[in-house]
Each structure stands twice: as C-alpha cells, then as structure tokens.
Design a protein around this nucleic acid. Structure first.
Lengths: 137, 137
DNA sequence: CATTTGCCTACTATGTCAATAGGTTAAACC
DNA sequence: GGTTTAACCTATTGACATAGTAGGCAAATG
C-alpha cells in the first residue's frame, strides 16, 4: 500500500504546480490548503528536496518551488523516492538480498510481471496528467 | 507490498496442487517442502479454510486438500482474502470510511485506475497458471 | 535586529508483521 | 480403549514501520 508519504508528496507537487506564480511558496500555505500538518510535511518535503523533486529557499520570501516542468515529473519517480521501492514483494525490492529460492520459485514470475506492469503504469503518468484542466500553464 | 501471508498462501496452494494424490496432505509435509515454519502456516491455512480456499481434516490421515480445481482459483481472490484488500491506498480499501476529500481529490482517479489494473491482473491469473508444466493433472 | 521561513535532531504512540508457545479437540489405527 | 497423528485455538512476543509531535538552529529579507 502507498503510504501517506507518497500520497502527500504528490499532493504537494500538485499544489505547487497549480499555485505557481514564479516565486517560492511557503510550506505553511501548502499545509493549510491541503489540510496536512506542516510539521509532518517538513519531513516529506525534505526527502523531496534530497531526491531532486523540488528546491527550497530559507528566510523571508522563501518556501518551495518545482524545479522542472510538470510534464517532466513521472509519478513513478515520486512514489519510488518516497516509498523506497515500487515493488510488490520484498524479494524484488530495490536493496533486497537475492532470495535463495529465486531460481525455482514458482511465484516469482508472477510478481515480476506485476512489477513491470506497475512500473510502466506509474512511469507512464506525469504530474501534468493530474492537474486540474483549468490550472495555469 | 504483498506480505508473507499472501505469498505463503499461494505457495501452499501450489504445493497442494502439485502433490495431490487424492487424499489429505498434512501441514507438516507442506512446511517441510516449502521451508516455512509449521506453526506460522497454521495461522495462514486457518484463514484459507475460513475463506473457502481449502478444507482440513483432523486426526490420523488428516491434513488439507484443495476444494476446487486449480483453474478455479483466481490469484486475486487469494491475495484479497489474505491481505484484506488488493487496494493500493487506504481510502479505497474494502472496509474504509469514505474520504471527505474524495469529491475533488486530484489523485483519487490515479489510484482508482491503478486498482482496476491490479484487480484485472490478479483476477486474470489462476492457480493453474503457476503450476510446473510437468505437474500432475 | 526582528521576522519569516527552511532545516535538523530527537522522541513517541500506535499498529502490523512474522512468528513462537502451549494446550485442546478430533479422527484413525492397533 | 489407548496411542498416535494431526488439525484447531488462544495468547504472547520482538522487531519494525507509520504517522505524526516538539523544540530549537540557520539563513535570508526588510
């Protein structure tokens, strides 16, 4: 299951895209609009900055800003960053130790096929696909 | 992520299908073949009996047995039973309270579409699709 | 220098996961 | 009828993840 980290991250990006006016947007505003604890969002945006999804600026007039165009954010990248992996099973997750049963595991191909499906689905979707039709360019 | 409950349940069904000789198969044998703790498997098979995936028989000569033909077990049903839900997000899970943001949530359609994809994928696969080619009828 | 805002470490409550432990009932075999 | 085999049942545990909270430091603006 996708946790709040991944889901909130996407909502933050949507919020930034739809309220973009060229400058930085303070987290306080995002938290208020989205109805999410600002303190909790801090943790999430920190990871997003670290992962190159957005940039932050301290001080008065500071806040956060997208660092790409909305169509250059694959949803899969966002989820993968926040959840650690898109994989459906532990033995196929990113940093997982190889399973000793892998060679003759009868279920592995099933999970692998599903993982491909998932990967293709979420990398086929972009942030721009989630924005309201009337959202500013 | 699919937990051990769901993954082991599928392996139990595969084991029962591939070692079917008409009678009941004791859990001890399945545990030994699969390299899974028998005690832990007890919990899992109990849920499987409750969910109508297999039948158990106590006493000498007892054990477990499939109660359908392998092609009549959709993988989706197994996972749904063991994991509680196939859904990717809490707000679309089976017994979930409806989310107050649902009406204008910009991410909900994404999760809903992915859930449909997942559902179709796992209900399109059957236990019979996972058996070794040489497995007995 | 005061205000705004991001950034950082630490802490906590709750719940789930993956088992383990030990006992009770049920059926079959001799 | 007792012994064996096996399912069935309740309870408990350690480890870890989730979803936050709390408080203070650093940086930039005016």
């Amino acid at each position: 299951m996708i946790s709040t980290k991944g889901r909130y991250a996407i909502r933050v990006l949507i919020d930034l895209a739809e309220n973009d006016s060229g400058g930085y947007i303070p987290l306080k505003d995002i938290a208020a609009r989205q109805g999410i604890s600002k303190k909790y969002l801090e943790i999430i945006v920190k990871d997003m900055v670290g992962g190159g999804l957005l940039v932050g600026a301290s001080g008065k007039g500071g806040g956060y800003r997208l660092c790409r165009k909305p169509e250059e954010y694959p949803i899969g990248e966002i989820i993968e960053l926040m959840e650690g992996s898109l994989s459906s099973v532990a033995c196929l997750a990113d940093g997982a130790a190889p399973c000793p049963r892998a060679a003759d595991c009868e279920t592995l191909p099933l999970w692998a096929e599903y993982d491909r499906l998932t990967h293709d689905f979420f990398y086929g979707k972009r942030l721009s696909d989630l924005l309201k039709p009337g959202a500013r360019a």
